[in-house]
Nucleic acid binder design. Structure first.
Lengths: 222, 222
DNA sequence: ACAAAAGTGTTCTCGATACACCCATGC
DNA sequence: GCATGGGTGTATCGAGAACACTTTTGT
C-alpha cells in the first residue's frame, strides 16, 4: 500500500534525549542502529510519527519500543528541519528530552535497535544524523532549566540525601557548590520533607533521607 | 504530478506570530483566510514547508508572501502536532514568533490571504485551527523572555526615548514600573547610547533619544 | 586514631525596590 | 499659569556568596 499526495511531504520523526546520572557523571541513552543509514552507528532513540498519534505519544512509543523505558516525563526541545539532515530523504525531527532517576532503568535493545545503553555525556561515540547537535542543545537546556525550575529532582530516586542532590547540581552545572548554601537553598524551596530514615553508605556519618512532598511535580522558582 | 510514499506522511507547515506595539497596546499580525478550511476566518500567517527549504526559510517566505513583511528576526516557539488540529488532514505546524518595531511595517494582503492586518492582542477575532493556543503560548514566551533577555528592544525604532521603552515593558508585563528604577536598569545594561538629539512630542519637555549600541543583537541578562 | 562524608550559622555584598520633587514645553 | 510627560538620588531590604568546625561511622 502506498500513500499519495499532490505535493511532496517530509517524513516526520521524534527523537528523545534521555538523561540520567551514573557514577557521578551525566549520561544519555543511545541505541545502536540496525538499519541504514548509519547502520551500526549510535543514535538517539526515536522514529516516525504515525498517522493518529500526537508527537509526544510517538516519542513515548518509540522510547518503549527501542529501549524498554516507559512512563517518563517528556519536554519538547526543538524541531530540527534542515533539508540535509537525513541523507535519504527530507526528514523533520521533533526532539524531546527527559530525565530519569539515577541508574533506575535498565535499557534493553528493541525493534530497530541492535543495542541500547547509557553513555557518559563527555565520552560519546560518533552519532548518526545531527544527533550530536540535538544532544548539545538538550544539555544546554538542561543546564538553563536547573536555574529556574526543579528539574534536578527528576534525577532523584524516591528518597535521597541532600548530598546526592547537591552532586546532581554540581554535575549538571560543572562546578562545585558550597554545602551550607546549597542546603539553605533546598530547604527554602519547601519542596522536600524528612523521610524519617538515614542511610549508612560507607565509613562516615549516615545521611538523612528526604523525599519530595509532591512527587512528579515540576516547580518554577526565581 | 503526485508524490507517493510507503507510509502515511503528515503535512508540515510553519505559522508565525508577529508582534508589535500599536497605540500603547500589544498587537499581532493576522491574515484573513481565502480558502477552505476556515475561509474568511482570521489566522496566523504561515503555510506548507517546501521540499528544499529550512523551517525558518519557510516561515520567512510565507510571511513575505502573505503579508509583505520581510527580514524579521524569528525564533522557533513550539511544534503543534495534535492529529485533530486540522479538520482536513494530519498537519504538523512548527510555530515561530517575531517582534517588529512599533508601527513600522504596513502589512498588505498577498497570496492565500484576502487581507492582512494588526489586531490588538486583547481584542482578537475567533481564530482558525488552534492558532489561539499558539498565540497564547507566544505571548507567554514573550513575557518570560522579557525577564532574561533584551527582546523588548526589538520593538523599538532606530532611536527611541526611555519613556517609550518603559511603555513597552509595561505593556508586555501588564503592570506599571517605577520610572527611576527602570532608567537605572536600562543604563546598567550598557546597551544603549545617547543619540545626541531630543524629540518634541507634545506639550511637555522634549525627550532625549537613545539608540542601541549593537543594533540587532539579542542579549541575555540575569 | 584516622579518614571521609554529614551536618550546622553568621557576615557581607550587591541588585531590586520604594519613594518625591523640579524641568521644559505647548496651549 | 497650568497641564503633561521628562528627568533625577537615596535609603532599605533580601537573596546569594563567602567562610570553618563538630559529628558519626567503618576500618
Amino acid at each position: 500500500m502506498t500513500f499519495c499526495y499532490d505535493y511532496a511531504r517530509p517524513a516526520v520523526t521524534t527523537d528523545i534525549a534521555v538523561f540520567t546520572i551514573q557514577d557521578q557523571r551525566l549520561a544519555v541513552l543511545l541505541i545502536q542502529r540496525g538499519g541504514e543509514p548509519f547502520a551500526g552507528h549510535w543514535a538517539l532513540p526515536g522514529g516516525f510519527v504515525e498517522a493518529d498519534e500526537t508527537l509526544e505519544a510517538c516519542a513515548l512509543r518509540e522510547l518503549a519500543e527501542e529501549t524498554g523505558i516507559q512512563g517518563v516525563w517528556l519536554e519538547q526541545l526543538y524541531t530540527f528541519g534542515n533539508p540535509e539532515r537525513d541523507p535519504r530523504d527530507r526528514v523533520i525531527s521533533v526532539a524531546y528530552f527527559a530525565l530519569v532517576p539515577m541508574a533506575s532503568l535498565n535499557p534493553r535493545a528493541g525493534s530497530d535497535a541492535q543495542d541500547a545503553r547509557w553513555f557518559f555525556i563527555d565520552d560519546l561515540p560518533e552519532l548518526a544524523f545531527d544527533h550530536r547537535d540535538i544532544l548539545d542543545l538538550a544539555q544546554h537546556r538542561l543546564r538553563a532549566k536547573l536555574d529556574y525550575s526543579t528539574v534536578a529532582f527528576s534525577f532523584m530516586n524516591e528518597t535521597f540525601t541532600l548530598g546526592e542532590l547537591q552532586t546532581v547540581y554540581e554535575i549538571v552545572r560543572g562546578e562545585t557548590l558550597d554545602k551550607r548554601n546549597f542546603r539553605k537553598f533546598v530547604k527554602s524551596l519547601n519542596l522536600v520533607e524528612d523521610a524519617g530514615a538515614t542511610r549508612r553508605n560507607g565509613t562516615h556519618k549516615p545521611a538523612r533521607l528526604y523525599r519530595l512532598i509532591q512527587p512528579g511535580h515540576l516547580h518554577y522558582i526565581r
